[in-house]
């Protein structure tokens, strides 16, 4: 009985602190979440235009449940050609998540990558000011992080290929 009281005396204040902190976070999340969602939608829109270098393109969202795919878009370029763009989440062997937009042509070959967000420490050095990934095969010291980008590209290719198989 004494032991239970002792544990309760320690655990209860911790529980109260955790509850207070959770309430604080819930409040902060309610305030910032809409702004963050809006920003990220805008960023993805700009990424698609940036990847194809075409301000006249239009795109529509496709239904896709392939692995690692957040969203798949069918892009109609201003010249009338069709291509695809995938919003992919992959991860490196160190566990850092990489969110990237990958442009894929209609044959399922990845064309270009733009990193939306990442939790790897090196990457800012190898992307230009628009966030576009400069074309490098690999960086010594960042092999796993670059593997994550390659994985993102192949996930996007697979998603587009599975689309072709279905139709």
């Amino acid at each position: 009985m004494k032991n239970i009281l002792y544990v309760a005396k320690i655990a209860l204040p911790l529980l109260v602190i955790c509850t207070l902190c959770a309430a604080l976070l819930a409040g902060a999340n309610a305030l910032t979440e809409p702004v963050i969602t809006e920003n990220s939608a805008k960023e993805k829109h700009e990424a698609i235009i940036n990847l194809f270098g075409d301000t006249g393109l239009t795109y529509k969202t496709l239904d896709c449940s392939a692995e690692g795919i957040n969203g798949l878009y069918e892009v109609t370029l201003s010249g009338g050609d069709t291509a695809y763009c995938a919003d992919v989440v992959s991860s490196s062997k160190y566990g850092g998540a990489v969110n990237a937009m990958v442009s894929v042509d209609k044959d399922g070959v990845a064309l270009d990558v733009q990193i939306i967000s990442h939790s790897e420490t090196f990457m800012s050095k190898y992307t230009d000011e628009t966030g576009k990934y400069t074309k490098i095969d690999c960086i010594s010291g960042a092999t796993y992080s670059f593997d994550a980008i390659r994985l993102a590209m192949s996930l996007a290719e697979n998603a587009v290929l599975s689309l072709g198989g279905a139709s």
């Binding site: 604080l24 976070l25 902060a28 305030l31 910032t32 979440e33 702004v35 963050i36 920003n39």
Partner: peptide, 10 residues
């Protein structure tokens, strides 16, 4: 986390 959310938003 609050600081992170605010920076992410604004």
């Amino acid at each position: 986390t609050v600081v992170e959310m605010v920076m992410h938003a604004y």
